[in-house]
């Protein structure tokens, strides 16, 4: 048999999954879709504008930095942009969104070498920077209340303060409200329902592992029961309140599970999740800030290399 064509020769294996970085990022975007949809339903068109500005900025800045024409490229910039919008209030000033999103890409990601090499979750770096710079726009009582045009009946019950601001505010919000999301808060954090749907999708696609969200939410729940102040008669409900109020669900499902900045070992992931939960609750209960998700995850991001170093699994038949 005569062969004219040159064969491709490579090391085994010779077949690969069809999954690529781009498909993974697209899956994350799909998972964020219900969350974004809920944000628009709850907070109105302004939420859409915020998200659009954020995504446009991240994609543009990344394309400029990498001198690439393909603005979407691997999709990671779009994910960062959308995630960054999710941790903003419904209608912050446009310049705040632009500066924050640009910082997320430059200081949070490209400075470290771009995708795969960043130490910290870029969206949270962006948030930390804007929180520290223009805190007035992000925390406190000046948030626009949700303007739900589908849950119209509930408008009167909604306060304008985030439920974590104090016990009175907390009691003003029912757990059902927290679950559906018609309460004050960041764009993406209010609706536990939408976040759960996104999380289930990511879990189904195999992009997240139960250990990080499980460890995180579990720790917050337990700490909430033990130290949460028990403002519901049933302590389990208090624990549930701490899980659903604020950014824990968003953090646990979308932020802490960021592949690049979390441990790769199984044990490490559990430690990471529990660590996030502990620091979050430490800040929430004893700190001066109402919310600690951003700081908790950033601190655990920093410890990730150490966790990975000390949780190398026992190999098959080893030990």
């Amino acid at each position: 048999m005569k062969m004219d064509k040159k064969m491709v020769v490579s090391s085994s294996p010779h077949i690969r999954t069809t999954e690529s970085v781009q498909s993974v990022m697209t899956d994350v975007l799909i998972a964020l879709f219900p969350v974004a949809l809920m944000a628009v339903l709850l907070f109105g068109y302004k939420a859409l504008v915020t998200m659009a500005i954020s995504i446009a900025t991240t994609m543009l800045v990344e394309a400029l930095w990498l001198r690439k024409r393909d603005v979407f490229s691997d999709g990671s910039a779009a994910v960062t942009g959308l995630l960054f919008a999710m941790v903003l209030p419904p209608a912050p000033p446009w310049w705040l969104v632009v500066v924050g999103a640009a910082s997320a890409i430059i200081i949070g990601k490209q400075v470290f070498g771009g995708i795969g090499y960043n130490i910290f979750n870029p969206a949270l770096v962006g948030r930390a920077i804007v929180v520290m710079s223009w805190g007035g726009h992000l925390v406190g009582r000046i948030w626009s209340a949700p303007q739900p045009f589908i849950f119209g009946a509930d408008i009167s019950a909604v306060t304008t303060a985030t439920p974590l601001a104090g016990h009175e505010e907390a009691l003003a919000v029912s757990l059902t409200q927290l679950f559906i999301g018609n309460t004050a808060g960041c764009l993406g954090e209010t609706s536990a329902l939408a976040l759960l749907i996104g999380g289930i999708w990511l879990f189904y696609k195999g992009h997240i592992d139960w250990r990080i969200p499980g460890g995180y939410i579990g720790t917050v729940f337990v700490m909430g029961i033990l130290f949460g102040g028990g403002f519901y008669d049933n302590h389990l409900l208090t624990g549930l309140f701490y899980v659903m109020a604020g950014g824990v669900m968003l953090g646990a499902i979308f932020m802490a599970t960021d592949m690049v900045t979390s441990p790769i070992t199984h044990k490490g992931k559990l430690i990471f999740g529990i660590g996030c939960g502990l620091i979050t609750m430490l800040i929430r209960i004893w700190g001066t800030m109402p919310e600690g998700v951003t700081f908790a995850i950033l601190i655990m991001n920093a410890i990730t290399p150490i966790i990975d170093r000390f949780t190398v699994p026992q190999q098959f038949g080893g030990g």
Binding site: V21, Y117, D209, M259, S262
Partner: peptide
């Protein structure tokens, strides 16, 4: 190949 995104798959 692109940089590892540490997905741990």
């Amino acid at each position: 190949s692109s940089p590892c995104i540490r997905c741990a798959k």
